[in-house]
C-alpha cells in the first residue's frame, strides 16, 4: 500500500469468497503494515465484515492468499490457531461469556491457550481492565454491565492475549449513542499506542482522527482506498461520493 517501506503484517492477494453461489468478496488485494490503522467502511452487505472475518479464519476464503504475520492461512488447523492467538477480535455484539465473570472472561484464553499461570494471567487482566477503565467491575458478570462497559471488557479480553493485530467488527453499532464515546475513546487510546488495527465502522470522526488509511467497499470489492484527508475531502469514485454524502449528512 502507501507505506512501501514497512514490512506488511497482513498481506491479502487476489482473494475471493463465495457464500454458496453468492460472490461476497471479489479480488481483494490489501496489505497492512505493522502499527498501521485501517478503517473499512461501506454500505451493509458490501462484504466489509466478511473481509476482516477472513483474516482470523472465522470465514474461509476460497481463492487467493492471506498471509498474516508471515503465516499463510490455509485449512491447516495449526496455522489457524497460531494466527488466532496473534489476532484479537472485537464483535458488534461483544460476545462475552455470560457464565464467567469479567475477570474470568479476560483470563480464560491466556490460561488455556497461552498456558499462562493463573496469578500472572489475573495480574495481566487487571492491568488491561484498568486500561479500558473498568477495573472496578472485575468480579461482576457481563449481564450486570451496560453495553459500553461490555464492549470495553471485550476489548480488554482480546488485549489479554497480547495480540499483534486487533480486528474490530462494527464495535459501536449495537450501542446506545451515549455509550459510543466511551468505547471510541478506548479505541483511540489503543490506536495511539501503536496497535495494528483493522476497524469496520461507520464512525467517520474516528476514521478521520486515527486512521492511516480508509477503505471503501461496495458489492464485495474494494472501490477506493486513501489517506483519510484525501478520502473525505476528495473522493474519486462516484459510489464513494454518494456513500459519504449519505453518511455525513445525518
Amino acid at each position: 500500500m502507501l507505506d512501501a517501506s514497512a514490512a506488511p503484517i497482513i498481506d491479502i492477494t487476489g482473494m475471493h469468497k463465495w457464500f454458496g453461489p453468492f460472490h461476497v468478496l471479489k479480488n481483494i488485494n490489501l496489505t497492512v503494515a505493522a502499527r498501521e490503522r485501517v478503517v473499512i467502511c461501506g454500505p451493509s452487505g458490501s462484504g466489509k465484515s466478511t473481509l476482516i472475518r477472513c483474516i482470523n479464519h472465522l470465514e474461509q476464503h476460497q481463492r487467493g492468499t492471506i498471509v498474516v504475520d508471515g503465516t499463510e492461512l490455509t485449512g491447516d488447523l495449526k496455522h489457524i490457531e497460531q494466527i488466532r492467538s496473534e489476532v484479537g477480535m472485537v464483535f458488534q455484539h461483544f460476545n462475552l461469556f455470560p457464565h464467567l465473570t469479567v475477570l474470568e472472561n479476560c483470563t480464560l484464553a491466556p490460561i488455556w491457550v497461552r498456558k499462562t499461570p493463573r496469578d500472572k494471567a489475573e495480574a495481566l487482566a487487571r492491568q488491561y481492565l484498568e486500561r479500558v477503565q473498568i477495573s472496578e467491575q472485575a468480579d461482576k458478570f457481563p449481564g450486570q454491565l451496560s453495553g459500553g462497559q461490555q464492549q470495553r471488557v471485550a476489548i480488554a479480553r482480546s488485549l489479554c492475549m497480547q495480540p499483534k493485530i486487533m480486528l474490530f467488527d462494527e464495535p459501536t453499532s449495537a450501542l446506545d449513542p451515549e455509550m459510543i464515546k466511551e468505547v471510541l475513546d478506548v479505541m483511540i487510546e489503543l490506536a495511539e499506542s501503536g496497535m495494528t488495527m483493522l476497524v469496520v465502522t461507520h464512525e467517520m470522526g474516528f476514521a478521520n482522527r486515527v486512521a492511516d488509511h480508509v477503505i471503501f467497499m461496495d458489492g464485495g470489492e474494494i472501490i477506493e482506498q486513501n489517506r483519510p484527508k484525501e478520502f473525505f475531502d476528495n473522493p474519486q469514485n462516484e459510489r464513494t461520493k454518494l456513500f459519504l454524502s449519505q453518511i455525513l449528512s445525518n
Binding site: N56, H57, L58, E81, R84, S85, V87, G88, M89, F91, H93, N95, L96, F97, P98, H99, L108, A109, W112, V113, R157, S158, M161
Partner: peptide, 24 residues
C-alpha cells in the same frame, strides 16, 4: 457469537466445549 469469540481467542474444539459450551 459464543463460538466465534472462542474461535477468535484461539480455543480448540475441546477447550471450547468444556469451558464455553457445556457450562452454558
Amino acid at each position: 457469537g459464543q463460538y466465534e469469540a472462542a474461535d477468535a481467542l484461539g480455543l480448540s474444539y475441546w477447550k471450547t466445549t468444556l469451558l464455553i459450551t457445556l457450562p452454558q
